[in-house]
Amino acid sequence: MLTSCSSAAVPDDKPDAKPVIQQPDPVAPAGLPLPDPPDVQAPSPRTTTEKPLRYELNPKTFRIQNPDEPNEKVLLLTFDDGPAGEATMELLDILDRHKVKSIWFINGHQVAKKKQDGTYAVIPEKAALLREIHKRGHLVGNHTWWHENLRKLPAEKQREEIVSTSQLIADVLGEKPKYFRPPFGAGTPVSETICREQGMVSMNWSVGSLDWEPAVYKKPNGITRQVISTVHSGGNILFHDRVWTATELDAILTQLEKDGYQFVLPTEAK
Rank of each mutant, 00 (worst) to 15 (best):
A121C: 13
V122T: 06
I123R: 08
P124N: 08
P124L: 12
E125D: 13
A127W: 03
A127F: 07
A128G: 02
L129A: 04
L130I: 07
L130R: 06
R131C: 08
H134N: 07
H134I: 14
H134E: 11
K135Y: 08
K135T: 13
G137W: 01
H138M: 14
G141M: 07
W145T: 12
W145E: 02
H147W: 02
L150E: 00
L150Y: 01
L150A: 06
K152P: 06
K152A: 10
L153M: 14
L153W: 01
P154L: 04
E156T: 09
K157S: 11
K157A: 02
Q158A: 00
Q158P: 00
R159Y: 01
E161H: 05
I162V: 14
I162G: 00
S164T: 12
T165E: 00
L168A: 02
I169H: 03
A170H: 09
D171E: 15
G174L: 10
E175G: 04
K178R: 15
Y179I: 07
Y179L: 14
F180G: 01
R181F: 06
F184M: 15
F184H: 13
A186R: 07
G187N: 10
G187W: 09
P189G: 06
S191P: 10
I194R: 01
M200K: 05
V201H: 05
V201P: 04
